[in-house]
């Protein structure tokens, strides 16, 4: 199966690979997936005092689509408010990257990672975590 040009571009030039300070109260970390499933994503956001995502970083173990989905997610997260970030839907990632059906789970994982990072940040700020619906797409 051939990858789309956008996936290849993110794979070759991943945006925002790296690590933020996990211990900081301004940083939320989401770690989703499992090694035995062949993909693990770690997505981190750094939120400034106005509630805007000032920085986002990722590291991903996975196929090209998984790497591209998380790279794209960090691109989209930067500059967004936390609330707007929560609204990112996996299907937008699918569309942007032209992922085939067998790779939809990569986008789901990216959405899960965004939500997990936001929740980690919220808990650090003394807020309630957002209820997450269990993703049904595998």
């Amino acid at each position: 199966m051939a990858y789309s040009e956008k996936v290849i571009d993110h794979f070759n030039n991943p945006r925002n690979v790296g690590t933020l300070d996990k211990a900081s109260d301004q940083v939320g970390t989401g770690l989703v997936g499992a090694p035995e499933c062949g993909d693990v994503m770690r997505l981190q956001i750094e939120v400034d005092n106005d509630g805007k995502i000032a920085d986002a970083k990722f590291k991903t173990f996975g196929c090209g689509s998984a790497i591209a989905s998380s790279s794209l997610a960090t691109e989209w997260l930067k500059g967004k408010s936390v609330d707007d970030a929560l609204a990112i839907d996996n299907m937008e990632i699918v569309e942007e990257l032209a992922l085939p059906p067998v790779k939809i789970h990569c986008s789901v994982l990216a959405e899960d990672a965004i939500k997990a990072a936001i929740n980690d940040y919220r808990v650090k700020q003394g807020l309630e975590p957002i209820e997450q619906e269990k993703s049904i797409v595998h």
Partner: peptide, 18 residues
């Protein structure tokens, strides 16, 4: 993912992400 990284080389992987 590794296979995309070596796209000029045709090999097989035991992974089955698809």
């Amino acid at each position: 993912g590794l296979m995309i990284g070596i796209k000029d080389i045709a090999v097989s992987s035991g992974s089955a992400c698809t």
